[in-house]
Amino acid sequence: MKVGVVVFPGSNCDRDALHGARLAGAQAELLWHEDTDLHGADVVILPGGFAYGDYLRAGAIARFSPIMDAVREHAARGGLLLGICNGFQVLTEAGLLPGALRRNTTLRFEHRWVSLLVQRHDTPFTRGIPAGQTLRLPIAHGEGSFYLADAELDGLEASGQVLFRYGPPEGNPNGSARDIAGVTDSSGRICGLMPHPERASEGLLGSDDGLLLLRSMVESAAQVEAVA
């Protein structure tokens, strides 16, 4: 089971994601954005950072990277795809996930711990997270305010695509609609979230709750591999 972590110019959480994937039990490899194949990766992570300097809009230019064709094909085949922070922004700009991530309503770069409420436990990303457990994860972003028009938000909720919400005690740090911190696509196999599970993947970092998500993802992919 191999995880590929895409490195865009300006990514800065790629090595953290690589480390987190290894802690979760996977082999892991960095994939350069100019590559045109995934080097056999079973799962792809688009990591945090500031791809292409966040020019124009965060994630807007990264979606044209050569490797994104292979990422799209991977997703179309049902491969697991996780976008963390800037990776989430890239996935919304690429049209692989719904919504848009706008400037925080606080107008500040928000970097602190948040509490995440897990909305579903039957997805490849959350199946190993005990019911009722709140995840302590850090955020670090200036443009993380999730937006969709109300009618579309209703549709997103009805189809069970809201996977994580900001919860108490800290609450919503950035003005995201309906406290949404992470969503999936309609298949449930593409996930994006603003908080950083890889920065909470071992006790030394203050929390290892992020490992629950990474391990769920890795074990889900390993099961598919075993069946195949």
Binding site: L56, R57, A60, E93, G99, A100, R102, Y147, L148
Partner: peptide, 8 residues
């Protein structure tokens, strides 16, 4: 398709 994000 690129310069603006029609959603927002």
């Amino acid at each position: 398709e690129f310069l603006a994000n029609p959603l927002v």
